[in-house]
Design a binder for these strands. Sequence first.
DNA 1: TAGATTGTTAATCGATTAACAATC
DNA 2: TAGATTGTTAATCGATTAACAATC
Lengths: 236, 236
Amino acid sequence: MVEIENNVNTEKKHERIDRPFVSPAVIRRLPRYFRYLRELLREGKTRISSGELSARMQVTASQIRQDLNCFGGFGQQGYGYNVSYLYSKISDLLGVSMGLQVIIVGAGDLGRALVRSTMFEKRGLDIVALFDVDPDLIGKEFGGVKVHDMRDLEEFCSTHPVDMAVLTLPKEKAEEESARLLSLGVEGFWNFTGKELSHISKNAVVENVHLGDSLMSLNYEICRRKSEKDKKRMKE
Amino acid sequence: MVEIENNVNTEKKHERIDRPFVSPAVIRRLPRYFRYLRELLREGKTRISSGELSARMQVTASQIRQDLNCFGGFGQQGYGYNVSYLYSKISDLLGVSMGLQVIIVGAGDLGRALVRSTMFEKRGLDIVALFDVDPDLIGKEFGGVKVHDMRDLEEFCSTHPVDMAVLTLPKEKAEEESARLLSLGVEGFWNFTGKELSHISKNAVVENVHLGDSLMSLNYEICRRKSEKDKKRMKE
DNA sequence: TAGATTGTTAATCGATTAACAATC
DNA sequence: TAGATTGTTAATCGATTAACAATC
């Protein structure tokens, strides 16, 4: 078996890594590569070619090589890619296990569902607090995380650096509270409110999860399918 | 004021509507148009030009005209678009208030959060049942919807036509249960499991909400921002 | 009629795919 | 060395934007 020798990784795990400007289309595919590589790792595969990976992932081999090359030569001609090396590289790029400090703003159903999920822990993010205005919730714990009074946000942020706020509060308060958070130094937002945060998007990173829009586009496709079936039936 | 006369809508509300093939990129923007039009309607605006709408939505006027024209001439030269007419047309396209029958498979935190949300009701979808395997949950009600035994799925589907299944069950069971649902006639899936459902995607419509991937791309951007700041600091 | 604004065609831009020389 | 497979350039495809004639 050929030994992979180039690109020797002398850095410690999750050390500083260069992130050149790369199109969002590529970035959005990285988590998917990450998942497939983890699976390969679990299966005990040590090497993979772009062709083999392309068959698994249902994308072209060309795209895989193009994507990975945005960040530097991770493979080796004639050999392919070393699974664990590529996995660690993509981990570093994505910032897995960087330990970003996260607060969840809004301890309703969704906020509580998120804090109890393993999603953050798995990816090495730390949820350090929940916030809410409801006196019945303040002081309680969910998933081992305490609900703080929304009025204590300033105090909390001055003593704990917060990298990311998960917005699961009512959409009516999204604009105001996101501005408040930004002024407290929070520059990353995972936005579930359905409200567009254009007022902060210049100075912060905003990732929107618009469940309503997602549901509607599914609704569209199902309706389209149905009416197409109807059309066919009419013809008969 | 100019009267809008063309494209007179003689159909009843939410009647059959022609959905030509249109690129997914356009479809994914429809819910957003829908939201902005609803807002205009609330404000009492009766007409809007592509230019004015483009300023609000932060997209080009050209794109708006291009998008809307995929489905036919909804506007009028020299006038613009009639807000309520356009709103109703986009409603019809998206299938708002078509009353699709929905079941939620998996009554965990996320499933319960969804059933208690107003998201489905607002868009005219009906959640008719929750399903789970947990004996402690079976028989209980959440948001007015009963939790059924997963074993009764066949029976339920044979008596109630189901248009959409929301998959909020553990990813390990996603493949098996989605195949089962497909065989029972369910052809629309809102997939929160994080598992890719390629085995059914030929015969069903699948909308994936991959929260983990979304979180990771946010993590990437925050880390990128941080390391860029570090770089600048180093220079000084 | 003159002004406004659409519908639509043409130009540009970006992303994906194909091809192949470099090289392990 | 021969075979395999990457890295990278060139070709294609699709989506976005610009421009303008049609027309209300």
